[in-house]
Amino acid sequence: MGCSASKTYRGGNSLRIVMVGLDGSGKTTLMYRLVTGEVTEATPTLGFNVETITYKDNEFTIWDMGGQENIRRLWRHYFLRIRGILFVIDSADNDRIDEAQELLDELLQHNELLGTPIVVVANKQDLDGAMKEKDIVELLELKHISGRLCTIQGTSAITGAGIHKALDNILRFRHHMESSRG
């Protein structure tokens, strides 16, 4: 679907994005699904993974940040020149949605990320009992986010559903920001 791993890039549109969220939300599986087009077995990320892909004539450098609590304090070191945030949640984990909401609030307080567009990636939509997007919008209080473009995208790293739409949202936000600058 127009997405490939890239070693050299000759296009003109380069985007550096971070993929963050609680541990176990599926960030690494999502990233490698984008890179390979297949499901790969992922182990907990103890630091970060970084991959570059080309999608719709845009180069995305994706920083997949480990979500364990002791690693999260290091995230801020990777926020410089970020053009978008993919905030990944496990939409089938009702027990940790409050923790995800607190983490999102903390993330939005970082000065380096002021105004940076965010796509909440509601992963694991293929699982029974997964929360619907409208419920996640309410639980994460997304309607109260101001000063940045924000949306939600349901995905499944296993089936591949919605993953490219998350990247499309980053591109749409980028276009909107460039258009509004004049």
Score class of each variant (00 low, 15 high):
88 V>C: 04
5 A>R: 10
65 M>F: 14
165 K>E: 15
114 L>P: 00
143 K>V: 02
21 G>R: 04
22 L>Y: 06
24 G>V: 10
106 E>G: 08
31 M>R: 05
152 I>S: 05
41 E>L: 11
69 E>R: 11
169 N>F: 14
148 R>H: 05
59 E>D: 03
155 T>Y: 10
70 N>Y: 14
67 G>D: 11
179 S>D: 14
81 R>E: 15
114 L>S: 13
15 L>D: 09
178 E>H: 06
118 I>A: 10
46 L>N: 09
83 R>G: 06
44 P>Y: 13
32 Y>R: 01
159 T>M: 06
164 H>M: 10
42 A>D: 11
18 V>H: 05
90 D>S: 06
146 S>A: 08
16 R>L: 12
4 S>C: 13
177 M>E: 15
155 T>F: 10
137 V>I: 15
74 L>Y: 15
146 S>L: 06
182 G>Y: 09
87 F>H: 07
56 K>I: 11
151 T>L: 03
78 Y>F: 14
125 Q>C: 07
25 S>P: 02
41 E>P: 07
116 T>K: 01
2 G>L: 08
117 P>M: 13
92 A>V: 00
10 R>T: 10
150 C>L: 05
177 M>A: 07
31 M>S: 08
164 H>Q: 14
165 K>P: 00
34 L>H: 10
145 I>G: 06
5 A>I: 05
123 N>T: 04
46 L>E: 14
19 M>Q: 08
76 R>T: 10
49 N>G: 07
59 E>F: 09
117 P>W: 14
20 V>W: 01
79 F>K: 07
13 N>G: 00
178 E>Q: 12
116 T>R: 03
60 F>H: 04
161 A>S: 11
182 G>Q: 11
7 K>D: 14
81 R>P: 00
46 L>T: 12
161 A>P: 00
43 T>S: 15
146 S>G: 03
165 K>L: 13
7 K>F: 15
106 E>Y: 08
150 C>Y: 03
161 A>G: 00
94 N>C: 04
8 T>R: 14
100 A>L: 06
107 L>V: 05
130 A>P: 07
182 G>F: 11
79 F>R: 04
68 Q>F: 13
160 G>I: 14
83 R>W: 06
3 C>P: 01
116 T>P: 01
33 R>S: 05
147 G>Q: 00
166 A>W: 09
137 V>H: 02
167 L>R: 02
124 K>A: 14
116 T>W: 04
76 R>A: 10
179 S>I: 08
170 I>G: 01
116 T>D: 04
68 Q>N: 11
38 E>V: 05
75 W>Y: 09
77 H>Y: 13
176 H>P: 00
46 L>I: 15
20 V>L: 07
63 W>K: 01
182 G>A: 12
174 R>Q: 12
160 G>P: 09
114 L>K: 15
122 A>M: 02
50 V>T: 11
166 A>M: 09
99 E>T: 12
13 N>H: 15
108 L>S: 07
130 A>Q: 12
21 G>A: 06
118 I>S: 07
40 T>F: 06
122 A>P: 01
112 E>T: 08
96 R>K: 14
118 I>K: 01
122 A>W: 02
62 I>H: 03
164 H>I: 02
